[in-house]
Every structure is written in structure tokens, then in C-alpha cells.
Amino acid sequence: MQQPLMISIQNVDKSFQKNKQENKVLENISLNVQKGEVISILGESGCGKSTLLNIIGGFEKTSNGQVFLDGELVTKPNRKCIMLFQNYGLLPWRSVLKNIEFGLEGSKLTSSERIEKALHYLDLVGLKGKEGLFPHELSGGMQQRVGIARALAVQPELILLDEPFAALDTFNRYYLQNELLRIQSREKTTMILVTHDIDEAVYLSDRIFVMHPNPGCIHKEIKISLSKPRDRSNSDFQHYRNIIFNEFHFGRPEPLLEFNI
């Protein structure tokens, strides 16, 4: 059964002024995201992926068109929506526990309720016992897990992820992709992921939107009809990977020149 809409993007254009000239970054972007879906926006650098994510989050305004979050027009950042960046965004002077509590400050929860909730999500991301440590005492993968726990603690309806694992090594990236799927399956949170990693998009997503640049536009929508978790070596996985790979029209490399020495 089709779930209700979480995000509706309708005919969005975005332009920036540079040297008194208009630079169009996005053109006629329209897409819908259902509640509980994991969506990837995939494209090469400079195609407007992050700009689109910022518009969805209310951090940038559209030049034309509208974005609706759970039926409400997006005009500014909203507590229903949390952004997760690749640089973790942790406060270095706060402990792990206090970093997770940060998003809960100002809520109606008591101090003990905030701590209880923060500890719950710390346990959910597999960092139980690390609450007293500071960010500099954690690996990059652990810091990103703290960021995920902090995002989940405010119980958002939508999490926006801007290449959250790009700075991590392959092993940590794979581990956190698995963790993200496990947590999303349990929490049923809607997620929109911006990435230029084809494998990551196929592994995590229910649907993928491929963007082309100049100006940024949705070139193709691809539904991934594979159960989760997915086997990266499976022929079906490789089938989707090749479909997306071919969208970017990578040419064959030039042959190496031979020299007689």
C-alpha cells in the first residue's frame, strides 16, 4: 500500500547572482517522497544536489516553485527535518552525551528525560558506554554515529544526509551504511541522501533520482526492486549499478602510449 507523502517538490528553479549575471543552478525539479522511503539524489559535482537538499531543509529559498513537508509549505528550517553533514558537526567542548542532548534542549523534557532519551539513541547506534567521551577521543566513524544519534533523538520525520560518509574509509563507510539501514528499518524515518557514490545509492535506496548539470535537473528516476540488506556482489545489484553508470556516459579511457626504450 502506498504511504502518505512526506515531501512534495513542485517545479523548483534556483538561480544565484554572480557578477551581475544570473547563474541557474536548478531547473524544473519535481519529485515526491513517501513517508518511510529512503531516496538518493545522485549526480556529479556541481549538478545542484546539495542546493536541492538545502531547499528541502528550508536553508535556501527557491527562485520559482514550492516544496511541501508533510503538507506544509517549507519557508524556513523546521524541527520535523534534520540535516546530517559529512563533517559530523559535533561540538568539541561537549561530551558525547551532551552532544546528543543538544537538540533536545529547549524542549519540554526534564533533564533526566533528556538524558534517558540520549542514552537510548546512543545505545541504538552501538555506542553504549561512550557517553562521557569527547569528540576528539572518537574515530571518524564513531563521530558520525554520534551525529546520527543526535539527529534521531529529536525524532524528526525527515533526515537529510549530505554525503555523510564521504570522508570515511571504505570499511567504516560500509559499516555505517549497514547501521543506517538497521536504524531506518526500526525507526521508519524518511531519509533523503545526496551522494555521488553509485554503489552507496543502490545499496541504501528505495528510489534513485539521477541529476544532470548545467542547470541541474532530474534526468531519470530508478526504482530499486531489491530486498534489504543487499549483496553488493549480486548480479541484480550490478544490473542497477550498470544502469546508473551508463547514465553518465563515461567514455572508454584513452589507450596508453607505448615507448621503445
Results as ranks from 00 to 15, higher is better:
K14H: 13
I198N: 05
N242D: 15
N214H: 06
I148Q: 03
F85H: 13
L26S: 10
N246E: 15
L69K: 07
I208V: 15
E137K: 10
L161H: 01
S205E: 05
N234W: 00
I198M: 10
V96S: 09
I243G: 02
G106Y: 10
A153G: 11
L26A: 11
N78E: 13
D199M: 10
I218E: 11
A167V: 03
R94T: 05
N64G: 00
F59K: 13
E221A: 09
V74E: 04
L127G: 08
P229L: 02
I9S: 00
K80S: 12
N19H: 14
Y174W: 08
G106W: 09
E116S: 15
Y175I: 02
F237A: 11
M6Y: 07
P4K: 09
H239C: 07
R207N: 10
L104Q: 04
K117R: 15
L193N: 07
F209R: 03
T189D: 04
S225G: 00
Q238I: 14
L42G: 05
K130L: 07
L176Y: 05
I55H: 03
L256E: 04
N19F: 10
I224C: 11
G57N: 11
I29Y: 02
L90P: 05
G36T: 06
I82P: 03
Y175C: 07
G141E: 10
F59H: 14
A118D: 02
K117P: 08
E221L: 05
V210N: 01
N23V: 15
H249M: 07
M83N: 05
E137I: 01
F237Y: 14
T75Y: 10
R232K: 15
W93S: 04
E22H: 09
P135N: 06
K228S: 10
F16R: 05
R150S: 12
I192S: 06
L158V: 13
K117Y: 02
V146Q: 04
